[in-house]
Amino acid sequence: MSNLLNISPSPHTHGKDTTKKLMYGVVLALMPALFTSVFYFGTGAVIVTLTSVISCITFEYLIQRFILKKPISITDGSAIVTGLLLAFNLPSNIPVAIIIIGSLIAIGVAKMTFGGLGNNPFNPALVGRVFMLISFPVQMTSWPVPAGFGTGYLDAVTGATPLAIIKEGLKNGESLSGLMEKIPSAFQMFMGKMGGSMGEVAAFALLIGFVYMLYKKIITWHIPVSVIGSIALFTSILWLVNPELNADPLFHILAGGVLLGAIFMATDYVTSPMNPKSMIIYGCGIGILTVIIRVWGAYPEGVSFAILIMNAFVPLMNTYIKPKRFGEEVKNG
């Protein structure tokens, strides 16, 4: 025989999924939300997204090429996902320089210092976002009002998010029912017609992405459902106890970044737990922390903080919460 045979241990076939495919699957799932945000926020959305994605890829390339001196892996799509998610968490009128600083923190500090893809304990996009929120609070909290294609970039008309309206109003002693008049209706919020970060507003677009990722088996239902479920449960209790001070659960789910966080941020492979049991605990933790921050905390929105806090518990959960092994407990019958 002229050519030699390959030998390797079994299995000798491999599934079709690759890291790249999964990452681009997430990118595809984010597209509906990207289109709606361009539709609502116009030029600003395009500029912010492009800046964020390009700078994330560039930083990853530069760090791998000149600091780590490792093979370049920017084509695996993980930097694109980080860039998109970071952009989705920003208002569409934020200056380019701030986005670049945020990308540097996201990729440089949160991802590459730990060794790159697969090793970062915290979600890079969220670390970048929280860094920007703390460092540039004014720019990060002046939300453009969704006005359609005509909306400019830096000169967009700004307004407050529904969550901020409620929080401020309650602090000033206004009644909740009066405040609810000032914010968009539930249907408008579902369609995304409200102030907020460019990617988080359109609930329906995010849900399309969720269904797509479930269908493609990119993620499982455990984390998103437990995050949303625990928020619904917790806010229902608060609402039933005192409907004058606490908004209804539907408002809490549609307002702010709950859907974006639950579907795309909390499910980030690297920073989420690995077995179904811990996934549900993790999701519930995020939900409860979010509501606590929203209702009693200083910030009107708390999804990013909640996810980052729960990220810190993931290694612990992976070590101590184990799936029940096959044959561990004999049940006959």
Binding site: T19, L117, P323
Partner: peptide, 20 residues
């Protein structure tokens, strides 16, 4: 490639081990 902790190995393991 590096492990991205997607947990697929755990979900497909018929013996519910943690292969990764």
């Amino acid at each position: 490639n590096p492990c991205i902790r997607c947990a697929r190995c755990i979900s497909v393991c018929a013996l519910k081990l943690e292969p990764f």
